[in-house]
Protein backbone atom coordinates (compact mmCIF):
# COMPACT_ATOMS: atom_id res chain seq x y z
CA UNK A 1 0.00 0.00 0.00
CA UNK A 2 1.36 3.43 -0.84
CA UNK A 3 0.76 6.20 1.59
CA UNK A 4 0.77 9.93 1.17
CA UNK A 5 3.50 11.79 2.99
CA UNK A 6 3.77 15.50 3.61
CA UNK A 7 7.07 17.34 3.26
CA UNK A 8 7.59 19.65 6.20
CA UNK A 9 10.30 21.66 7.85
CA UNK A 10 10.95 20.13 11.25
CA UNK A 11 11.55 22.48 14.19
CA UNK A 12 12.36 21.09 17.65
CA UNK A 13 12.07 22.98 20.92
CA UNK A 14 10.95 23.13 24.51
CA UNK A 15 7.43 22.71 25.86
CA UNK A 16 6.16 23.11 29.42
CA UNK A 17 4.95 19.52 29.46
CA UNK A 18 8.33 18.23 28.31
CA UNK A 19 10.09 20.38 30.92
CA UNK A 20 7.90 19.10 33.74
CA UNK A 21 8.18 15.50 32.62
CA UNK A 22 11.95 15.47 32.25
CA UNK A 23 12.34 16.79 35.78
CA UNK A 24 9.87 14.24 37.08
CA UNK A 25 11.60 11.25 35.46
CA UNK A 26 12.89 10.44 31.99
CA UNK A 27 11.80 6.82 32.13
CA UNK A 28 8.22 7.58 33.15
CA UNK A 29 5.24 7.26 30.80
CA UNK A 30 4.56 10.99 31.13
CA UNK A 31 7.97 11.83 29.64
CA UNK A 32 7.34 9.55 26.67
CA UNK A 33 3.89 11.06 26.14
CA UNK A 34 5.35 14.57 26.29
CA UNK A 35 8.13 14.08 23.74
CA UNK A 36 6.98 11.29 21.37
CA UNK A 37 4.90 13.85 19.51
CA UNK A 38 4.89 15.60 16.14
CA UNK A 39 2.73 18.73 16.03
CA UNK A 40 1.28 19.88 12.71
CA UNK A 41 -1.48 22.14 11.45
CA UNK A 42 -5.01 20.90 10.83
CA UNK A 43 -4.66 20.71 7.03
CA UNK A 44 -1.57 18.53 7.23
CA UNK A 45 -3.39 16.17 9.57
CA UNK A 46 -6.30 15.95 7.13
CA UNK A 47 -4.02 15.29 4.15
CA UNK A 48 -2.26 12.56 6.09
CA UNK A 49 -5.61 11.00 6.91
CA UNK A 50 -4.56 10.59 10.53
CA UNK A 51 -6.69 11.28 13.57
CA UNK A 52 -5.41 13.64 16.25
CA UNK A 53 -3.09 11.48 18.35
CA UNK A 54 -2.69 8.83 15.66
CA UNK A 55 0.72 7.36 14.79
CA UNK A 56 2.91 8.93 12.10
CA UNK A 57 6.41 8.19 10.90
CA UNK A 58 8.74 11.17 10.74
CA UNK A 59 11.53 10.60 8.24
CA UNK A 60 14.62 12.67 7.54
CA UNK A 61 17.90 11.89 5.83
CA UNK A 62 19.22 11.01 9.29
CA UNK A 63 16.63 8.44 10.33
CA UNK A 64 12.99 7.83 11.05
CA UNK A 65 10.82 7.44 14.11
CA UNK A 66 7.18 6.71 14.91
CA UNK A 67 5.44 9.25 17.15
CA UNK A 68 1.93 10.55 17.83
CA UNK A 69 0.65 13.28 15.54
CA UNK A 70 -1.12 16.22 17.16
CA UNK A 71 -2.81 19.31 15.83
CA UNK A 72 -1.29 22.43 17.30
CA UNK A 73 -2.58 25.96 17.03
CA UNK A 74 0.24 28.26 16.00
CA UNK A 75 2.07 25.70 13.89
CA UNK A 76 1.95 26.94 10.29
CA UNK A 77 1.34 24.75 7.26
CA UNK A 78 4.73 23.51 6.12
CA UNK A 79 6.14 23.24 9.63
CA UNK A 80 6.26 20.28 12.00
CA UNK A 81 7.19 20.80 15.65
CA UNK A 82 8.65 18.11 17.89
CA UNK A 83 9.53 18.68 21.57
CA UNK A 84 13.28 18.24 22.07
CA UNK A 85 14.25 14.83 23.35
CA UNK A 86 15.11 11.35 22.13
CA UNK A 87 12.40 11.13 19.45
CA UNK A 88 13.33 14.41 17.77
CA UNK A 89 16.99 13.42 18.05
CA UNK A 90 16.30 10.14 16.28
CA UNK A 91 15.80 12.18 13.09
CA UNK A 92 18.46 14.86 13.76
CA UNK A 93 21.90 14.82 12.13
CA UNK A 94 25.21 14.97 13.99
CA UNK A 95 26.97 17.38 11.62
CA UNK A 96 27.88 20.58 13.45
CA UNK A 97 29.58 22.64 10.73
CA UNK A 98 32.60 22.92 13.06
CA UNK A 99 30.62 24.73 15.74
CA UNK A 100 29.71 21.87 18.08
CA UNK A 101 26.03 22.55 17.41
CA UNK A 102 23.94 20.10 15.38
CA UNK A 103 21.06 21.51 13.35
CA UNK A 104 18.12 20.91 15.70
CA UNK A 105 15.80 23.29 13.87
CA UNK A 106 14.85 23.54 10.21
CA UNK A 107 15.35 19.92 9.16
CA UNK A 108 13.75 18.70 5.91
CA UNK A 109 11.34 15.95 6.90
CA UNK A 110 8.56 13.82 5.48
CA UNK A 111 5.69 12.86 7.74
CA UNK A 112 3.81 9.69 6.77
CA UNK A 113 0.81 7.98 8.32
CA UNK A 114 1.86 4.88 10.24
CA UNK A 115 -1.35 2.93 10.85
CA UNK A 116 -0.89 0.06 13.22
CA UNK A 117 2.69 1.02 14.11
CA UNK A 118 3.53 1.44 17.77
CA UNK A 119 5.51 4.27 19.30
CA UNK A 120 8.70 2.83 20.78
CA UNK A 121 9.47 3.50 24.44
CA UNK A 122 12.56 5.67 25.10
CA UNK A 123 14.35 2.47 26.13
CA UNK A 124 13.40 0.66 22.90
CA UNK A 125 14.46 3.69 20.88
CA UNK A 126 17.82 3.78 22.64
CA UNK A 127 18.41 0.03 22.21
CA UNK A 128 17.72 0.32 18.48
CA UNK A 129 20.21 3.19 18.13
CA UNK A 130 22.87 1.34 20.10
CA UNK A 131 22.39 -1.74 17.90
CA UNK A 132 22.88 0.43 14.79
CA UNK A 133 26.21 1.50 16.23
CA UNK A 134 27.32 -1.97 17.30
Amino acid sequence: MTSVGVRLLLVTGRTVRQGRALESGKLQQEYMDSVAVCEVDRTTLRVLGVTDGGPVRVETIHGSVVVRCRVREGVDPGIAFMPCGPYANAVTGGHTATTGMPEFKGIDAVVLPAPGEGVPTPEELLRAQLEEGA
Binding site: L22, G25, K26, G94, L126, Q129, E132, G133
Partner: peptide, 28 residues
Amino acid sequence: DPAAHFPREAVRHLGRIPVVNIDPKKNM
Protein backbone atom coordinates in the same frame (compact mmCIF):
# COMPACT_ATOMS: atom_id res chain seq x y z
CA ASP B 1 21.60 13.19 29.58
CA PRO B 2 23.44 12.92 26.26
CA ALA B 3 21.64 9.67 25.36
CA ALA B 4 18.37 11.63 25.29
CA HIS B 5 19.58 14.95 23.94
CA PHE B 6 22.20 14.14 21.31
CA PRO B 7 21.50 13.23 17.68
CA ARG B 8 21.32 9.48 17.00
CA GLU B 9 24.72 9.41 15.34
CA ALA B 10 26.31 10.62 18.59
CA VAL B 11 24.16 8.30 20.74
CA ARG B 12 25.41 5.29 18.75
CA HIS B 13 28.97 5.89 19.94
CA LEU B 14 27.84 5.99 23.59
CA GLY B 15 27.02 2.30 23.16
CA ARG B 16 30.53 1.47 21.97
CA ILE B 17 32.46 2.96 24.89
CA PRO B 18 32.33 2.84 28.70
CA VAL B 19 30.26 5.63 30.25
CA VAL B 20 30.41 6.75 33.87
CA ASN B 21 27.10 8.42 34.67
CA ILE B 22 26.82 10.70 37.71
CA ASP B 23 23.28 12.02 38.14
CA PRO B 24 20.58 12.20 40.81
CA LYS B 25 17.92 10.60 38.61
CA LYS B 26 17.42 7.71 36.27
CA ASN B 27 17.70 8.94 32.72
CA MET B 28 18.43 7.50 29.29
